[in-house]
Design a protein around this nucleic acid. Sequence first.
DNA 1: AAATACTTGACAAATTCAGTACGGTATTTT
DNA 2: AAAATACCGTACTGAATTTGTCAAGTATTT
Lengths: 145, 145
Amino acid sequence: MLRLSTKGQYGVRAMFEIARGYPDNPVTIRKISERQDVSVAYLEQILNKLRKAGLIKSVKGPGGGYLLSRKPDNISIAAILNELEGPVAITSCLNPDEGCVRIDSCVTHLLWKELGKQVEAFLKTITLRNLAAGDFVKIRRRKSS
Amino acid sequence: MLRLSTKGQYGVRAMFEIARGYPDNPVTIRKISERQDVSVAYLEQILNKLRKAGLIKSVKGPGGGYLLSRKPDNISIAAILNELEGPVAITSCLNPDEGCVRIDSCVTHLLWKELGKQVEAFLKTITLRNLAAGDFVKIRRRKSS
DNA sequence: AAATACTTGACAAATTCAGTACGGTATTTT
DNA sequence: AAAATACCGTACTGAATTTGTCAAGTATTT
C-alpha cells in the first residue's frame, strides 16, 4: 500500500544525478538515462516538469545539460515529489482540488490528514545532500495526549 | 501522491462501526452499509478478508452480525490496512514478494525503506479506541545525526 | 552548417481500481 | 419444517491511472 509512482521515483533519482554535477557541470539527459536506466523520452517529461517548477535549469548546445537551480541542501525530496505527483493526499477527499462532502461525519478524516502531515514533514527534512550522503533524519516517538 | 485505496479506507470505517458494538452487540453488514455509505456487496469482500485475518468474527442468523475479535485498543490501523492492502511498500521493489535488482546501486532504496518504516510505525500506534476517541499520537521531530 | 540538446504534444498498451452480479451456505426463529 | 435473516465466494467488467513510446519540432554552440 501507499505506493509512489515511477515518475516520482525516477524524478528523485534523476535529481540525484544532476546534483552530482553541482555547481557548474551540466549533466545530459543521456547520461542520466544510462546511469539510472530510464528511457530518454520518459526522462524528458519528468525533467520538463522539474524545470518549469524552477528546481533545475537547462543549458543548450554541446556541453550542455541540466543543472541544479539551488544548493543541494536546499532541495528537499518533498519539493521534487510535489512537482511530479502533487501534494500528499492519502484520500482523494484530502486533495485540495477535490473536496470532502462528509468531513464532519467522517471519523477517519483527521487520521488521514495527520498521516499525510507526518509524511510530508519527513520528506521535507531530507534534501539532495542528505540523499547523497546517505544520512536520514531519525525520529523519536513520544506520546503527547 | 501516496493515496490509499478505497478498500483500505472503507475497511477502517467498517471496523469503526463494528467497534461500536463491542463487546457483544453484533453489527450487521446492512447497518455498516447505511452508516458509512458503502455498498453491501463491496463490504462483504472487505469484511471477509478481515474475518479470515482474525480481526473480526461473525455471528449468523437473525440478530447476528460482526464482532471485534479483540479489544478496540488492541487493534491498530496498521493491522487493518495490512490485511486489506498488504504491507507498506513505497516502491514495488520494497514489496517482500517482488525483489530489487539494483539494491546496491540504488541511492533511494534506503530513503523509501525509511519512509515506509515511519508510516508503519505511526499507523501501529493508532488503535480503534484512539480513532473513536479522536486522540492521535503526536510525534516530535529531532535530528539525531 | 552540423552537431548536440532540449521541448512539446499526442497516443496507446498494460495495469490497477472500484464496484457489481450472482449463486450459493449456514443459523435461528416461528 | 420453512421462512427469514445473515454470511460466503467467485467471476466479471467498466473506468481510471500508470507507464511509457513516438514523432516532429526549436534552440544553441562549435
